[in-house]
């Protein structure tokens, strides 16, 4: 193992654990003989790496040009509103995490979201609710509605 193997090593760690634990980064630095700052730098520089554990269901909303123009931002807002988390965050119960991706290359199906590696097409706010319901957000959803009702009154 040498310095040039840093990215593949980090990729393998992420594949195994779903994210890059700090402890692992330290071990990588030691094993490859590179400064810890370089490992941390690479881990934070590249979009693919994450430093916190992902949710059980990973939701990636495409923000390519075509998706953005077709309402990708609306879809992202809807996910944020329903899940009550921002981009790059995981719900407190560890069920869902939300990411923004540059382009998944299915521009004709825009707006697109990748949910657990399955591409969902035409993600309108209604579809967002449908996706989340199918993944078992029903309980939380109810709560949400109750809250908004309470606010309405």
């Amino acid at each position: 193992m040498q310095e040039k193997d840093l990215i593949p090593v980090l990729e393998r760690i992420q594949k195994k654990y779903g994210y890059l634990p700090l402890q692992a980064l330290k071990s990588v630095a030691r094993e490859l003989g590179v400064p810890a700052v370089q490992v941390y730098g690479a881990a934070t520089f590249f979009k693919q790496f994450r430093l916190n554990p992902p949710g059980k269901y990973q939701i990636e909303v495409c923000m390519g040009t075509a998706c953005y123009m077709a309402g990708g931002q609306v879809a992202l807002d809807s996910f944020e509103r329903r899940l009550k988390i921002g981009v790059g965050e995981t719900t407190p119960d560890g069920e869902f995490s939300l990411e923004r991706v540059a382009c998944v290359g299915c521009c004709n199906l825009a707006p697109v979201a990748v949910v657990d590696n399955v591409v969902e097409k035409n993600v309108t706010p209604t579809r967002v609710d449908g996706i989340l319901l199918s993944l078992g957000l029903s309980e939380e959803n109810k709560e949400n509605k109750e809250n908004s009702n309470a606010q309405g009154k």
Binding site: K4, L6, L32, F46, Q48, A102
Partner: peptide
């Protein structure tokens, strides 16, 4: 690992070198 700037040649090579 996903960085737009790595489409630039020198940046691409550096990312392959573990930087």
């Amino acid at each position: 690992a996903g960085a737009f700037v790595c489409g630039e040649g020198t940046a691409l090579v550096k990312s392959m070198e573990g930087k």
